Computed example of a mutant assay.
Amino acid sequence: MIIGFAAGKNSDDESHVGELYSLYLLKESGGLGAGRQLVSVIAKQFKDKGIESMMVWVMEQNESGRGFYKRMGGMEYTRRNSEFGGIVVDDVAYKWGDVSSLLIE
């Protein structure tokens, strides 16, 4: 049974920062550690490619998502406005300077 997925990519700029651009879990799978494991897999892929840092954008109103990334050690470092479903929303970026801190052995 699939309970979630994650995806990452190199950032769109020249900073050589990896971007976790999607992380989704079924609601009933929350709190089981699956989110941490998925983030760890993406972090390992970046590390293996020589990408040492990672960031993620989260809608400011997504308090559970923001809390999750903060608990994982993400530090808020910038904000932006984006359009989502025809509505302008505020986004917050969290960054990890060393993806090794996200690896689960």
Rank of each mutant, 00 (worst) to 15 (best):
G4T: 09
F5K: 08
A7I: 08
G8P: 00
K9M: 15
K9V: 12
N10M: 14
N10P: 11
S11T: 03
D12F: 07
D12A: 13
D13E: 10
D13H: 01
D13S: 05
E14W: 03
E14T: 04
E14G: 02
S15G: 08
S15R: 13
S15F: 06
S15M: 13
H16Y: 10
H16D: 15
E19G: 03
E19W: 00
E19P: 01
L20H: 06
L20A: 09
Y24F: 10
L25N: 03
L26C: 11
L26T: 12
L26S: 05
K27Y: 13
E28F: 03
E28Q: 13
S29T: 11
G30T: 12
G30A: 07
G31C: 10
G31V: 15
G33L: 10
G35W: 01
G35N: 06
Q37D: 03
L38K: 00
L38G: 00
V39R: 01
V39K: 00
S40L: 00
V41L: 08
V41R: 03
I42G: 06
Q45P: 05
Q45E: 13
F46I: 13
F46D: 12
D48W: 06
D48H: 12
G50V: 08
I51R: 00
I51S: 04
E52N: 11
E52S: 13
E52W: 02
E52C: 12
M54L: 13
M54D: 05
M55V: 02
V56P: 03
V56L: 07
W57G: 09
V58P: 00
N62E: 10
G65M: 07
G65P: 04
R66S: 10
R66Y: 01
M72I: 14
G73D: 04
G74F: 04
M75C: 14
M75P: 09
E76Y: 02
Y77P: 11
R79A: 08
R79Q: 12
E83F: 05
E83Y: 05
E83R: 08
E83K: 08
E83M: 11
F84G: 01
F84D: 13
G85I: 07
G86L: 11
I87C: 06
V92G: 01
A93S: 11
A93Y: 03
Y94Q: 05
K95H: 10
W96I: 07
W96A: 04
W96Y: 04
V99I: 06
S100N: 10
S101H: 07
L102A: 01
L102G: 00
L103M: 14
E105Y: 02
